[in-house]
Amino acid sequence: GISEKLLVERIKELLRFVGLENAPNVIASNLSGGMQKRLDIACALIHEPKILILDEPTADLDPLLRKQMWQLIQSINRKGTTVIVASHFVDEIEENCSRIAVLANKRIQKMGTAEQLAGEYARNYEILIETRKKDYSNLNKALSRLSVVDAVIEKNNNIVVYTPEPGRLLSWFAKYCQQKKEKINKLNLAKPSLSEVFESIVKNEV
Rank of each mutant, 00 (worst) to 15 (best):
Y121K: 01
N25G: 01
V83N: 00
M35Y: 02
L15C: 08
S29L: 03
S75F: 00
P49K: 09
N77G: 13
A101G: 14
K67H: 15
L117E: 11
E115D: 15
I46P: 10
K50D: 12
G19W: 03
A104S: 14
R10A: 14
I11L: 12
N30H: 04
K67I: 15
I108W: 02
A28Y: 00
L128T: 10
L61V: 14
K79S: 07
A28M: 00
A122Y: 02
V83Y: 00
G119W: 06
D55M: 09
K106I: 03
G34Y: 02
Y121R: 07
D62C: 09
F17A: 12
R38I: 07
E13V: 09
Q109Y: 04
E94V: 02
N105I: 10
V83K: 00
Q109L: 14
V83S: 01
D55L: 13
S29F: 01
D40F: 02
N30C: 01
E94F: 03
A86S: 08
T58D: 15
E48N: 12
D55R: 08
I76Q: 04
R123D: 08
L20N: 05
L117G: 07
I27N: 04
V90W: 00
I93T: 03
I46V: 11
K79F: 01
N96S: 07
K37N: 09
K37V: 04
L65I: 10
A44S: 14
N22K: 09
R78L: 08
N124V: 02
L45I: 08
V83C: 01
D62E: 13
P57K: 13
P24E: 06
E48G: 03
D55H: 08
I11T: 13
D60Y: 13
Q74C: 06
L103K: 03
E115F: 03
Q36K: 13
A59C: 15
I93C: 04
V102W: 03
E21H: 02
M111E: 13
N124Y: 05
L20W: 03
M111V: 13
I73C: 11
C97G: 04
H47W: 08
V90E: 02
Q109E: 15
D62L: 11
Q109R: 15
L52N: 14
I127C: 06
G80H: 00
I41G: 07
M35W: 00
R38L: 10
Q109K: 14
T82Q: 01
L15Q: 03
S29N: 11
L61S: 13
Q116W: 08
V18I: 04
